[in-house]
Amino acid sequence: MHGFANPARFLRIARWLMPLCMGAGFVVAFGALGWGLFFGPAERLQGETVRIVYLHVPAAWLGMAGWMGIAAASFMELVWRHPLAGIAARACAVPGAVFTAVCLITGSLWGRPAWGTWWVWDGRLTSMLVLLFLYFGWMALSQASEASDGGRNRAPAIFGLVGAVNIPIIHYSVIWWNSQHQAPSITVGKSAMAGAFLWPLLLAMLGFTLLFAGCVLARMRAILANQQAEARLRRKALGAAY
């Protein structure tokens, strides 16, 4: 754990891990999308619209995983003050928000032909929209705290942990409450989804997860490099002043 907290060691790992994640993610994700789109079957009731699942479900998973990443990094930030924890949290925000938005948009494009409506205010859809707004709020707060408390990240870390309460609410919304959205098809060790849909979906989830990891690593390298550049320039400016 402490090994990863060392920026130099992190860079040494990220330098080969980031392109690996991105390359493998590309091949797997787009292979799975092609499989589902062109070779997968249509669904008994939904017909061709079911193919949206190969984008919608990975996007939903990564939208939630992004916030889980922010929460985990925030926890490390608050307890152990790892130098990379705040950077990791900030790196998760944009990819997580993008996937949450993709989940909402593809869901809307799926809901119109399948349910007969673009949007309803049921528990699942509302809590997912709340997640998107949480991302926006978190990004604004983290930017503000970077400017004001010198990147100590206390306020965004607390926000990241409190906001994590929304994740189980999203997941259980379709179980606790009557909702327009159906219950989960894939639960631990069981699937209500035929293999012809399940396998390309699992592959797409793996591929998009790798892509997500690659993007987070690239964001971390970017944030770290910017911090190092600024520290260097500040030191130089000080040196010139004396």
Partner: peptide, 17 residues
């Protein structure tokens, strides 16, 4: 006034219907 279809969690290929 309005009807919305609700899908269940089962996904069955069309060939099997």
């Amino acid at each position: 006034d309005n009807l919305l279809a609700k899908h269940d969690e089962n996904y069955v290929p069309r060939e099997m219907k």
